[in-house]
Design a protein around this nucleic acid. Sequence first.
DNA 1: TGCTTCCCATCTCGTTCCGAGATGGAGGCG
DNA 2: CGCCTCCATCTCGGAACGAGATGGGAAGCA
Lengths: 308, 308
Amino acid sequence: MDLRQLRYFIGVAERGGFGAAASALNIAQSALSRHIKELEHELGGALLTRTARGVAVTESGKVLLERGRWLLGLVDDIKAEVRTENREPSGTVRLGAPSSVAEIFYPPLARLTAERFPRVQLELGEALTELACDRLLRGQLDLAIVTAPQPNDHLAYETLVIEQVFLIGPPQDPLLKRGRMTVNDVKRLPRAILPLSRTPFPTEVPFFVRVESSTPMKRIVASGLGYALLPYSGIYQEIEAGRLSAALLPWMRAERVLAVPRGRPISRATHETVALLKEICSELIHDGIIRTAQRASAPTGRPDRPRR
Amino acid sequence: MDLRQLRYFIGVAERGGFGAAASALNIAQSALSRHIKELEHELGGALLTRTARGVAVTESGKVLLERGRWLLGLVDDIKAEVRTENREPSGTVRLGAPSSVAEIFYPPLARLTAERFPRVQLELGEALTELACDRLLRGQLDLAIVTAPQPNDHLAYETLVIEQVFLIGPPQDPLLKRGRMTVNDVKRLPRAILPLSRTPFPTEVPFFVRVESSTPMKRIVASGLGYALLPYSGIYQEIEAGRLSAALLPWMRAERVLAVPRGRPISRATHETVALLKEICSELIHDGIIRTAQRASAPTGRPDRPRR
DNA sequence: TGCTTCCCATCTCGTTCCGAGATGGAGGCG
DNA sequence: CGCCTCCATCTCGGAACGAGATGGGAAGCA
């Protein structure tokens, strides 16, 4: 049994004749006749009784008529349902980002996701590059924002933004008041504080503390115990509040990279989340919260698979 | 959307790949690929995510998978339902017959219908030829058993049985004891009682009472008030009980005819009822309750429309 | 009764759709 | 780096489908 045959049968039954149904269905009467005949053969009996002026529906035809109308309605419902499901991404996106990025990206991401994709659930975790990549490979994350990741065949990278890096210290620190510093300036620092992640900044800097999260790092710096390297987005609130001061390191960059696992399907929800993150990034740049060293253009790792 | 496409999609989704599904569905992988693609185009989005070793079902695909399985089950249910509906006739059959025929045909008809066609409802009315034909034409009856009806283009006739006619009188009546009577014998009858119907018996017989129903007729005859003409089936109980006596009129016949309206569809239930009536008739002849003058062979009126 | 009209069944032909096989690209795996 | 698996695409032959013409049966009408 075919939906087309069902539609034809219902048309003939409703209009009481092959000819009338043929013109209404935009099909030849002969084709109708043949389809109904085939349907009757498959169902093992007459569905219509042919008379000199039209057709009458048999008892079994009445059953098929009623059920068939219902079935066609169901088909339409299902199509509509799948279509809206397709229009609206859904499912869960598990995202990982370092705490400094999470701090500024997660609030607008949550707001935009709720607004535009109400059927998407977010799981927003905090993880530095190594842990995030590991979780991506284990399938515990769908998407991560990392910094200078190891090249990996099972991960696809796409540069989100390249940020300027600042040396930060206590307010009114004399070392920072020039606004920008050279490599040698930094190498002569008495006490540097770096993130725990091993590969955040490409330049060798002597350190005496590594900290995982940016908040304690900033507290340590604010207390005057040392200097730290951070992009502007991680410290803009403290700078504006006067709790920290900073000097640009023009020769240094922090590259924020989106990472997704390769060889595993990427859900539409994840794709939309990527789009949202790019949008948020642009907004943050526009608002001056992110200061870019260079606009993202070429991907760092292997190119992401093309969007369909 | 087509049921075939749906079946293919479910096959691919369940087996996790085009190739596996292709061999299971006995179809080429290329055809599967094309159908799924078409379905995805119609539903406005991807249903499957293609990976290097198979497919993954997207969110919308999951919806379609669930609904589609349900829909295919429904289709099978509907097919089965229509098929049994086709195997078992159903609906209402409205039958009319004169009371004498009703008396002996209706009980076995009701029993056989209940046994074999439990979904058929019977409406068993009593009507003589004229009224029955009128009701057939008005669409108030589906089928009637009549006697010597007027030819009518809107009615189709089929002879059921031709019965012998008997002259009946009180028990041990002297006129009847010879067992058979000639035309002149009947014409000299003192008091004849005939059915109300105008054309039951083709021979002119003087009468003084016409009665519609056979039961009062037989009571009148039993009381010795006159003689009546009836086929044996109408009086066999009274003959066996000794309440009446009868003499065969070999020159006279009563033809029982099945009548159905022409130009209106005849339901399967009506067809089956006709078959049952013929079967009952044979049984009654075999049991000696109906005495035939001649087996039914050629139809009286225009031939019934052929069975499909 | 004969004619007309209406309606459906059947036949035939051209188009479309569908399925099969071959080929190629992408990714996984040793 | 080569091999294997899996899917997409191309092309071709066959089946299904739709359109038009034809014919038969029944109803309506004169």
